[in-house]
Design a protein around this nucleic acid. Sequence first.
DNA 1: CTGAAAGCGCTTACAG
DNA 2: CTGAAAGCGCTTACAG
Lengths: 341, 341
Amino acid sequence: MDTEVQERRLPPTLEEVASLAGVSRSTVSRVVNASSKVSPKALASVTQAIERLNYVPNRAARSLANRQTMAIALVVPEETSRFFSDPYFAEIVHGITHAMESSDYVLNLQLASPFVPTSKTNKYLRGGNADGAIVVSHHSGDAFLADLADSFPVVFGGRPMTSQQPNAYYVDVDNAAAAQMGTQRLIDIGRRRIATIAGPADMPAGIDRTTGWRRALGAVGMADDLIVHGDFTPASGARAMRELLDREPGLDGVFVASDLMAMGAVTVLRQRNKSVPGDVAIVGFDDNSAAVSGEVQLTTVSQPSMEMGEKIWEMLLARLRGEPTERAYIMDTRLVIRASA
Amino acid sequence: MDTEVQERRLPPTLEEVASLAGVSRSTVSRVVNASSKVSPKALASVTQAIERLNYVPNRAARSLANRQTMAIALVVPEETSRFFSDPYFAEIVHGITHAMESSDYVLNLQLASPFVPTSKTNKYLRGGNADGAIVVSHHSGDAFLADLADSFPVVFGGRPMTSQQPNAYYVDVDNAAAAQMGTQRLIDIGRRRIATIAGPADMPAGIDRTTGWRRALGAVGMADDLIVHGDFTPASGARAMRELLDREPGLDGVFVASDLMAMGAVTVLRQRNKSVPGDVAIVGFDDNSAAVSGEVQLTTVSQPSMEMGEKIWEMLLARLRGEPTERAYIMDTRLVIRASA
DNA sequence: CTGAAAGCGCTTACAG
DNA sequence: CTGAAAGCGCTTACAG
């Protein structure tokens, strides 16, 4: 009755490891947490006992005792479909999960519709169910995230709207400079009537890339009137391209704020029998799989999305540990020249 | 000292709610869990106290006490990039999260490379950190998942390889019948040399759809020799299409096991100046955004991915509650006719 | 319907 | 370096 048979074997506890190893629970806890010194002898017997029992610490008990959940919330204030269809998110998340791999933290997916963060996500975060949060794709309307970041360790993927987040921690690229570089490419290859398919006007990435496009044109005295906004999806890129073409049939270059939108734009161009880059040169942004999966390989501004994800985790971890870390980490971009411009 | 100022306000506890409401902790617990009866009076004062203190139960304490984690692991034995770039996963996950919305469970993302489920995921699951798991995209090599499902509530998205999972719970469609229906469309519109771009041979969806294609051709005495396998990505679809064309320039119809691969195939066809569906008709599989985002709208076999996600959650919840539920839930498919066939 | 009490499995000062 | 003990915030029989 005291050893073998049991209906449903309960997982072994610290207690059991201790008794098997012939030490106190404190000691077992110490070796599990690699905290203060433990004698080689105790260490050996405990390690062996853990091995034999296949012991894994109970997360709930641990959390309760030390007030850490070891869980990170990945908050995505975005339509599920967009989150999953944009390779940009894939790479960021890949970077995050890859970097977290070596830690004991787990990632909780909190998919929240934009603008109406569900009470569930809210409650979850406020209920102390996570030690920190990572927010990707931040819209200006996501008010609740603003104050959250003041009382809770949060790192943003992409600079949040500054008015709301004066002291936010984030990793990003210099979107304006990057967009300027991309637009400059169009100028350099001789384009004279350059449009832009911009991102959403309620997201810094959308705004700043537009600024960069304007800056490049302004520097050479070109008009910056050809602008249509999209929402980073291929469909919106197609729609925008149609509108631009209707407005200015003679345009010969377009700086597009994301590769996915650029794909949509290229599709429309071909439908209208415009060659790329012959008639219209296209420069995209991101340099992810979308840039090379269409019929014409995109010249694009490359940002290190995966590395950004890794850096996000690095910064959040530093914050969780109370270590110093920069508020904003800006990564480099570069122009990748392929076929479209 | 006893009320207002505090360095870092700790979240309110059950205890505090109880004292404010003037009842015992037991009573508060009862109203929080809507368990046994509580007098209207007690209910009112507790509800009010909860409201005033903005009380949210501590998840760790709760888990420890009742041995439930209220967490579900979403295990994805797939490359991160594929997981994120296939709309099929997006819809499944959307369905899952949507259905879970009304529950108190949270979803933990466990991205594991195929064939080498990290020890982390493994440890996480065995460590009792989740009450159940959902596994999408199961390859035949994922051995560790096999025995896990025997001792742990798991529901699979898509039938797992049967040899390993004789008693698995899953939701799926009848892939063979669905593929047969898709292939039949090609026959019906007069195609005589029909190929297939199949899915991976280590996944049931890949195998069964191939079976359906064979069946349709066999029924009318056509040859079923034109088959090339892809891995569900657009790039693999393009590669396969090239190979098929090289092998049989005269083919006039292709049943493709996923819309994403079909997109890749269409791209190649156009590059080789073959019109779709004029020269070659294409029938895809899935009916997700990929079917309508390319240059030619795909005729495709539609499966209710999002509903499948919802059903997965429903089944898992039933299992968690110890309620009876079917082992396999097979959903309907239908043919959606657009431009490609 | 309600409260006192034990217990869930850990961590962490505190002594030694 | 090590152990006894208190405590983390809940839930759940058990009495009443």
